[in-house]
Design a protein around this nucleic acid. Structure first.
Lengths: 185, 185, 185, 185
DNA sequence: TATGAATGAGCGTTCATTCAT
DNA sequence: GATGAATGAACGCTCATTCAT
């Protein structure tokens, strides 16, 4: 077996993080190589092209959120407001890391009109977030209202993260999380 | 005297629109030339570089919003909720055009971490939006609460526009505007 | 009007000559740039891609042969054997130049199975050569025999040029031309 | 002892076939690996570099032709025209396989001016073909004429194979073989 | 002012080759 | 002997920018 400096999963994690913080188009293959400690030619053993790195990165992100973030919503042993608080805290901690913002929002901004191939995955991540929020809110709200509030929470958080980046001030996001938790009472 | 095919202002308007819908880095000088009906060499009589086009475009946008959108907020002859409704309707109409999203949000997503030179202008546009909203809200709210709600409205709208793009559904934004108007009663 | 170092026609002539002598795939854009006295990026003002350079080069070659070589065949004021001699002499002089061989044969060898898009043009050049030869031979042969002999002459010349390259000996080609002229008596 | 999936000879046979049909420069080490059912790293246990694969492939081809094709010429128990017919039929069957053309002609076209190291082997294969043809023709022709006709047959066949590829029509080659056999009577 | 040919640095990508396992 | 991850030079190509006209 040949040497393996870094796994495919680690590569994707590092690349996605770079895309999130610096943008997809502003990130060159050399940047990715540097971040991963590889030569840029080496990427093409793992991925066909740069687009595929983003695509696979979004798949990994979707699965990571499903398995480690959104799953919190479905632990019915914990109080709804606790689940909401815990889930959103984990989520926004990732978004605010390195003042990079939300991966879905940033990739959407960059690609939706010119490279719509990423749209299904971006929507899927959003859908799952919405489903998780709705599940929590149904503990204390009628089903339809829960769905509607879930969308409002997502908007509030996304807008808050955007303002937190722009003003380098996490307060916007912190308060948005608090407002969101308050919907559970 | 040669014909003036297009004014500097018209060039900026068309370029900003392209940046908003397709992203700054995804837009080439050739794209801008095509959009403006010019040869790309001609741009360098108006602007030093591509960055300057974005910079001047943001200045123009800032002034346009100050003069034509945010000014609505300060017309004290009109009911607050009418001003809110009118201002936000005009604003989101621009954002949703061509499913392009919010210029400030999109440019922020693309440039904040790698080219922070545009941050002051992006903040300035946001600040003026916040000031306009606050002014309206002060008609019916204590000053501090007005400021706070203004931020919340901005987040709600920004998040709604992002979801409207992602799901190609203006409903998110329409409802966010309605919620915002409701704060005035 | 900006400076123009070299015309599109001159570029094509030089590039085709390089392709003929060194092969299409062995010729890099840098090689072409050097041959033309340009930077490689400059080619993309004239041509979309390397394949297009070959394609346009084949078009130019087809037209050049039609206008300057094969046209000799149709000058009915000259004796058939004189026309044959003159036409083939001009033709093989081009093929043997720089020991490069026949452009059609070389490009065929390189591209026919992997990039068949050039086949129509290669056939067209061959067809016109065949038509020219047939026209001369019809002066002294029945029509069907003329056609058949025209193909045989083409094979003889092509095979001779191939051997002349391989053995660096023009004798093969010289004799093939002589044999071809002899068909006119 | 590990299984020997494929012998060196089989590798060379498959690689040469690929070079003949798709060209040397258009064939990547990955293509060769796929064709041979090996990993590309494994090639470097058999051969130092890609050039050596072609070189050894030409050696193998030279020996194969000497042992299985040209040897037909020297079986003096058979009528000359039968030997000619049999030898050329076997030869052109190989050339026309997969519409790939003549290995010697194709490799010559690709390498003669830029990588002359293969020229000796290409000439050697041609020389042996010429010797075989000459041997047959000496049965019914003076020695010098036999040599001369042998070259003419080679040219005719090479030209015919080239046209057969270009027009996807084996008729050119079939008739060239018939003409060649006719020299024996 | 306007052009568009030319530039050259740098992009994403390819590929023959190496080498630790 | 065989692997396949890794390399790094070089590929075809892009693009913001320059400048003679």
């Amino acid at each position: 077996m040949p040497i393996q400096k870094i796994t495919r999963e680690e590569i994707l994690t590092k690349c996605v993080e770079r895309f999130r913080t610096h943008g997809f188009h502003r990130t060159t293959m050399n940047d990715l190589a540097e971040v991963c400690g590889l030569q840029k030619g080496s990427f093409y053993h793992y991925f066909r092209c740069k687009d595929e790195i983003l695509h696979e990165g979004l798949v990994q992100t979707r699965d990571f959120f499903a398995d480690h973030i959104f799953t919190i919503a479905y632990d019915n042993d914990i109080l709804p407001q606790e689940r909401m608080k815990s889930m959103l805290a984990s989520h926004v901690a990732i978004m605010l890391r390195g003042n990079g913002g939300c991966l879905v929002a940033n990739v959407s901004a960059e690609t939706l009109n010119s490279t719509p191939e990423f749209m299904p995955l971006l929507r899927e991540i959003s859908d799952r977030w919405h489903a998780a929020l709705t599940h929590i809110l149904r503990s204390c709200r009628p089903s339809e209202e829960a769905e509607s509030i879930a969308w409002r929470i997502m908007q509030d958080i996304e807008g808050a993260v955007m303002l937190s980046r722009l003003y380098a001030n996490e307060q916007f996001t912190t308060e948005a999380v608090e407002r969101s938790v308050a919907y559970c009472t």
